[in-house]
Design a protein around this nucleic acid. Structure first.
Lengths: 210, 210
DNA sequence: AGAGTTACGCTACGACCTGTAGCGAAAGGC
DNA sequence: GCCTTTCGCTACAGGTCGTAGCGTAACTCT
């Protein structure tokens, strides 16, 4: 969770866990009030009731701090078994859309992704703490659909991985694009169309036999 | 193209068009060298051989400047008739992916989208100069597919618009997510899967009868 | 209890970027 | 030639970054 490893030494004054949580909470609050570009380390420190130097002892820069502050929000994502592939898809899409509606994620997610294009460690941090969490939902959804017989069992494992990657990019990308670029609501009707497109198209992809 | 309207007065010294193009070109070069976060107005002015005040006379801030600098790159997007819906989709996806491979677009596009979540005029600027240009390709592609008989003719115009919006968000979103978030190559195999998913799923969406 | 170690809050600082103002000079139209 | 607008240049106040130094607080080990 924290950036710089505080040397697993047992001696000395331990780091304040309360400060950690206060800083991350203050970061989210600052994102809501100020947005990404106007958020400053000094402001976050003030909100958290912490010295600015304390922030720099834990996080090297604004990007890593914001990733950690936003990452915990993605813990909410869950995939209850609703009985059909289409219902599962619609549920997770609505969940993801609700997450993107929150101002702290809306303003921060694209900003850190933009920075990650020139910062490999940051990209890895995003992948580990945010992207992988979402991707697991896709894997679970496919597994359940196979158990129900809605999707054929695995043949070529390479093709299965590729299809999982495709589905993940399509779902996550479409929702993000709809919410942030097109700036249109991700409502029930749109989700119905998207899930119909996916369920209907999955058969065609499987028929490729790649 | 330019931000502040220079008062359509015929009198007085006219604005240097060379300065405009030099500034936009310098902005793209600075994006390649420095990325989004480290790009400064002073640096761009220096590269363009122009005073910093000249930049502020044309663009109010970094965001609007970068949008204009990147927007012209999207003029390259074209949709030649390749004879089938699937071929058309694959071609435009590969074009879009090639555009996202360029470091200036890769680093700038998500950054301005992130800023636009808190800046309605900027969002409108992006929509007019970038998003609409892409969306027209979707409309052209559907029209051609209808002429070929690959897709049914329009019944409910509202449903048709909604489907166009869906297809656009799915294609653009999936490509961006694949290239920038997953950071995996948009190669021929992936594009084949995506287009198969779309072509196969479109029938299911139409069958919704919404 | 005392020594050792580490984190903390605070202040100060140089470097940098922002966005604006004022100036004289240049480049057009009338 | 006069008027208008833009140009380059310099200077400036305001804000942010990230670091250094200091004394103090908290915790562990002997």
């Amino acid at each position: 969770m924290c950036s710089s490893t505080p040397r697993n030494s047992r001696t000395g004054r331990p780091r304040s866990i309360e400060a950690d949580t206060a800083i991350l909470e203050a970061t989210r609050a600052a994102l809501v009030d100020l947005g990404w570009s106007k958020l400053t380390m000094g402001d976050v420190a003030g909100r958290a009731g912490v010295a600015k130097t304390t922030l720099y002892r834990r996080w090297a820069n604004k990007n890593e701090l914001v990733v950690d502050a936003v990452a915990v929000l993605f813990d909410e994502l869950e995939l209850p078994d609703l009985g059909s592939l289409q219902a599962d898809i619609e549920h997770v899409v609505l969940q993801f859309a609700a997450l993107l509606e929150r101002p702290e994620t809306k303003t921060a997610l694209m900003a850190v992704v933009a920075e990650s294009t020139r910062d490999a460690p940051l990209r890895e941090r995003i992948r580990a703490s945010i992207v992988d969490r979402q991707k697991r939902l896709v894997l679970d959804g496919r597994r359940r659909a196979q158990l129900r017989g809605e999707l054929p069992s695995d043949r070529d494992p390479v093709a299965v991985d590729a299809t999982d990657d495709l589905i993940f990019d399509v779902i996550a990308g479409a929702v993000v694009h709809r919410a942030l670029v097109s700036a249109e609501p991700v409502d029930g009707e749109w989700v119905t169309r998207l899930s119909a497109l996916l369920v209907g198209g999955l058969g065609a992809v499987a028929a490729l036999g790649l």
